[in-house]
């Protein structure tokens, strides 16, 4: 898994671009004037994926109560009906144009002993606020390699942590106090990105004409890329299929 993310990272690093686009997470930035293409599609799997196991949060009774009746399932591989894959990042990894740096603050919540959202995409230097919404202490430990790694607790009632990531990097984030809490901070230079929902669907829009490499990245299965050429205002269908194994 780690080698995959490093490979992706290298791709991200050599990617530079100037185009603007929208993503399905967060508010869509305004479209640039003129013709713009769209890439959309679905991420699915073949084979048998690992089971989504219920997480037993017994050591933190607060969180057990918050999820009473519907225990949280593991989020490393989240599947939907029709073999779709959730939490897959799809983004322009090469040939990017028209991206602008994002300035709006993104928010990460720690709620019910979960990171919300599980996958958080942001651009370099985009402000990030981390909140603890639980009545007990949490600890945020981004296992960064290119960016400075840090590890801090946030007790109940402590102010939000204001931070940002300077370098593009896919950063696993864990809570040391609650071992099951895992999330990702995906720092990408492009603003053309999307994270799949439960239906596995994604849309990258506002792409000026040009030749692009589109990459889909899943935390356990790694990355796949496809080359796509956009000429004018058209919608190009692109689908990704990951091969899943149960273990």
């Amino acid at each position: 898994m780690r080698t995959h993310s490093i490979a992706v990272l290298a791709t991200v690093l050599i990617t530079g671009g100037l185009a603007r686009s929208a993503s399905i997470v967060g508010a869509a930035p305004p479209r640039p004037p003129g013709a713009a293409g769209t890439i959309s599609g679905k991420v699915t799997y073949t084979g048998t994926p690992p089971k989504m196991k219920p997480i037993d949060m017994a050591k933190e009774p607060n969180c057990v109560t918050q999820h009473a009746g519907a225990p949280v399932l593991t989020e490393n591989v989240v599947t939907g009906p029709g073999n779709t894959l959730r939490w897959v990042l799809v983004y322009i990894s090469a040939g990017d144009q028209g991206s602008t740096p994002a300035t709006e603050t993104v928010r990460l919540d720690q709620k019910g002993c979960q990171y919300i959202p599980h996958v958080l995409v942001l651009q370099p230097n985009q402000p990030l606020d981390i909140y603890n919404d639980d009545p007990h202490s949490h600890n945020i430990h981004p296992l960064a390699k290119l960016n400075p790694e840090w590890n801090r607790s946030q007790p109940a009632g402590a102010p939000p942590i204001h931070t940002k990531w300077e370098q593009p990097e896919f950063i696993p984030v864990k809570c040391n106090v609650h071992p099951w809490m895992h999330g990702w901070h995906l720092v990408v230079t492009t603003s053309h990105y999307a994270v799949t929902g439960e239906d596995g669907a994604f849309t990258l829009s506002g792409l000026p004409a040009g030749k692009y490499t589109v990459t889909a990245w899943q935390e356990q299965f790694g990355a796949q890329s496809q080359d796509v050429t956009i000429s004018g205002s058209e919608t190009k269908p692109v689908n990704f299929v990951f091969k899943a194994t149960p273990y």
């Binding site: 202490s137 607790s153 007790p155 009632g157 402590a158 102010p159 942590i161 106090v177």
Partner: peptide, 8 residues
């Protein structure tokens, strides 16, 4: 942060 002592 904010004067509240963290566990560490």
């Amino acid at each position: 942060a904010g004067g509240v002592i963290t566990p560490e």
